[in-house]
Every structure is written in C-alpha cells, then in structure tokens.
Nucleic acid binder design. Structure first.
Lengths: 261, 261
DNA sequence: CGCCGTCTTGACGAATCTCAAATAAAGTGG
DNA sequence: CCACTTTATTTGAGATTCGTCAAGACGGCG
C-alpha cells in the first residue's frame, strides 16, 4: 500500500496505514534500562550470565520506539539498519510474494527480535506492524556488529539468533506442508501458550491480538475456516472462546490432534 | 530410520539407508582447488572479487566428500561442525515435525551451501541426502568463524548466507500458504530453471533428481497430484515430460499461472 | 445509539487426497 | 545382457477437506 522508503532509525516517523498519527516518541529517557527490563534475558537466550547479557544490551539499545496499534515499524525495501526487540506489546510481520499476495509470516512477543532477515541483504524483506500499542527497543546493527566482533560469546548469540529464525521459518513451512487445518490451529495455540508461559504469563488463558483473518493468513487458511475450527474446538471441550479471549481447557487433547495422522 | 549420531567430518562413513556402501572417499587430493573450481563464486554470492573469494575458499575447504545416491551427509541431532557446499551433484534436506512426519525442506545444486541452520545451535536439525552421486566440499566451521573474525567482508558474506537461508525458508512457507497446487509446481519449475541457468546449464531442459513423491513433499502435495499436474502442463503445451526429463516450452505461460489469482 | 469492522454459521462447490489398478522404469543377480 | 524384482509413475473414481459466497450477529467506538 505504501511505497515510501524511510530509515526506521533513529527518527522513524511513518504514519500508520489508516490515519495520521503523532510522531512516534523516543521514550528512552522515560523508561528503565535493559538491566531492569522485565524481559530478563529473553531477548537473546543466552549462555552468558543474565547480568552480563543485560549490560551488553544496554550498550546496544540506542532508542526505544512507541508504536500504536497498526503502526508500521519497517517495510519491504526499507534499508536495514537495526534489529528491533519487542519490549511491550506484539507485532506481526507480513511478507509478499512476487505476484502480490500477502501472508502473515511472523508474530513477535516481548523479548523476541525482528528484522533478522535483513542482515546481510541490507534491506528488509517484509513489513512489521504493531498488533497493539507496543514498545520496541532499537538495536542499531553497526553496534551489534561491533560488539559481536569484540565478544566471541556475543557473536555466537548473533549466529544463534539467525539460526533460530531459519528454524522458525522452516517449522512454519513444515506446518503448512504437512498438517491439516485443525492441526495447524492446534499447533498455533500450543506454540502461543508455550511462549506466553516462557514470559511468565498464563499459558492457559490469553488474548489473541490477531484477527481471524490474520491467524488464517499465517496458517494458510481462510478466516471462516479458523472461525469454524475455534467453534469446533469449543464444542469438543478443547478450548473456550470468547471473541479473542482463549482458554485452553485440554492441552493434552490439542497435542493429540497434532499426533493424529 | 537411523538413530546413530556421527560426526560428519572429516571421516564420515555412514552406510546408506538401503545397503552397505564403501567408505566415503576423501577426494581432496584428486580434485582441483577452489581457484579452479568451475562453480566460480557461486558458493557465496560475493561482493569480493571472484579471485579473492576463491582463495578464501581454498583456505576454508578442508576435505571433499564423495557421496553416492542415497547417502546421508548429516542427520538431525548430528553435532554441527561444518558447512557443506555442493560441488557436483545435488542433495535434498528432509526435516521432521515433532509428531514424526517428514518433509523435503530443501534442494541444493552445485554452489549451494547446506547446514546453515546448524550454526548457533551446534546441532543439525534436518537430514541431508544425496539425490545422485555427488561431491561435497567440507567447510569446518571453526575455520569459517576465524576467517569471518579476521575479514569483515567475509563476516558479511556469512551473514548474507544466513539471511538468504531465512528468506528461502520464508519464500517456501509463502508458497505453501498462498498458492494452489498448479502454482506451486510452476514456481518449482521456474525456480529450478533459474538456478540451472545461473550455473550455466540449460534453463529449458533438465533432469529432475527427485521423485514425484519428493517433489510433492517439498510442495505440500501428494505424488499423484504432482503427476497429474505434470500431465496437465504437458497437455496445455507448457512443458514436455518424459519421466524425469523436463523441457520448459512456455515459460511465459508458467509465469502467468503464478500471477493468476 | 448507530455504524463499521469482525466474527459466526450455513449451503454449496472446487481442489486435493485416498484408494486402487495398470504401466513404465530402474535396479539386481545370474 | 537378460530375466526378474522392485520401485516409480500414470490414471481413474470416489471421498474429504477446505474455500467461496452470503446472511446475520456481535461488539467497540465515535
């Protein structure tokens, strides 16, 4: 929809898709440093001590950006200059095929890092959009690179970050290639549940930040199919659904769905 | 099928899946160096001069391995110690979901590098199998790492390699999520054609090294569907099929298939 | 309170899978 | 090199899954 190419850092100020928005605020001065960040060492699962990791991050994070729901953090074609860590809130990434169709390709929770696919190509290849009001830590890549060069441990974390991204994409390709609709949705819910648990949130009750259409897009399904499946899972006593509020009632049952042929 | 975990380098000697095979020969001494390798700078699309790149590679390649069709280069769980560049032949990678289903996740031609997903996790997460008798260059990762540390340009190549892998996986997820069967197969053929052209082979006539089942697995389709589509493409004058020998007759037509809703 | 985006549900149709059988090709042992 | 065995491919018929189209309900926001 937008073709404008802008640098996302440090003074990113692109308006949202739907309406004019105030300039995104740099909230660095008003927020605590990485050392006190509640995310802990989730940002990069670390073999370093948590404290070491956090100090490193303090060195890396240049600014923080506040996004409002629907705001775009970066788009395809934007020059890659930084990685982005979700601090608060959540984002989706949307990719496009050459022929123009779009698909939700990623979903990022606090502590997860976006933009990795841009390393090495110097441009972003997808669009990142806030699913709710969010706060994003900006990690300028030149700093990341310098630190990686100086600190072998950190270099390894960077490799790990990229490997993880490869494995994540591959997992999602596997899901789309081998699973039926109900299995994909069950896998989606279980994955979400696990990631919430890892962040200290409830793993059995959470709010979906994506619409049925966005979930469907990520899973290669139509929104009606997603809706029907939620209803069916509900009937079968696997989950409880109230709009976007989900309760997992029978985790084992969901896991069995996955195993079933 | 096999659970044995072995180090793939330098003396990899796993028998094939079906029958005992002679120990894989290290053919380093009998083959020319990277400088003379016909692949040119394809191994890592490079911003360096081709000569520089080749010399670097000479420094990196420890041994070469000869695989016979069906031989396994590495498996999930194998310790990651090296990257593998296809020199001659071709390989597939096969990934497994937690519930045990398999899918072909990658297809590597001469000059392409396998094993990237193992960087950072220290284990391989998929299985690599030769689709035909092949020759593989082994790039021990400690050497890669050292060179990357010393040479900024090469470090960047390494990042690029990993980014490319991310984008490749994402592209394949997009295909599976948004395209219909005929579009997936058309995209598969066009991609193959482009990659053969980039290697100086005919882009209009080539031999498929995968079975219908393997192609289907990669595209999230059943072998019968792949077979039917080949027949239909043939009827429609898009391609000519003789078993695994494919001629592209109407590239435009195939591309139009992709664009079509 | 009414509008608009989102969600649910039904009926129908198309795409793809499953099962089955025949044919073709490739690999094996003599 | 041939005969035999095994594996791969093609093709058909019918079943299943999921998408499409359409209508109505729900819910949040101005």
């Amino acid at each position: 929809m937008h073709a404008t190419v802008v640098s996302a850092v440090p003074a990113y100020r692109e308006p949202s898709q739907k309406r004019a928005r105030p300039i995104l605020r740099d909230v660095s001065s008003t927020t605590p440093s990485c050392v006190d960040c509640g995310i802990g060492s989730l940002c990069m699962p670390s073999t370093m001590g948590a404290q070491d990791a956090k100090h490193m991050f303090d060195e890396l994070v240049s600014t923080r950006i506040r996004l409002r729901k629907g705001d775009v953090l970066f788009r395809p074609g934007d020059r890659f200059t930084a990685l982005f860590a979700v601090r608060v809130g959540s984002c989706k990434t949307v990719s496009m095929t050459d022929d123009g169709s779009e698909q939700v390709s990623g979903h990022y929770l606090p502590g997860e890092i976006m933009g990795v696919e841009g390393i090495g190509n110097d441009v972003h290849t997808c669009q990142s959009v806030a699913l709710e009001d969010s706060e994003i830590c900006v990690l300028p890549f030149d700093r990341v690179e310098k630190l990686a060069q100086r600190e072998g441990t950190f270099q390894h974390q960077l490799y790990r970050l990229m490997s993880t991204a490869i494995v994540r994409e591959r997992t999602s390709a596997m899901m789309l290639g081998t699973m039926r609709a109900e299995q994909r949705l069950a896998a989606f819910l279980l994955d979400l549940s696990n990631r919430y648990r890892a962040r200290g949130y409830s793993s059995t009750e959470f709010v979906l930040r994506m619409t049925r259409e966005e979930i469907g897009s990520q899973l290669g399904l139509k929104l009606e199919t997603v809706s029907r499946l939620f209803s069916r899972f509900h009937e079968e006593g696997l989950i409880e659904v109230q709009g976007r509020v989900i309760k997992l009632l029978d985790r084992i049952g969901l896991q069995q769905l996955l195993a079933a042929s």
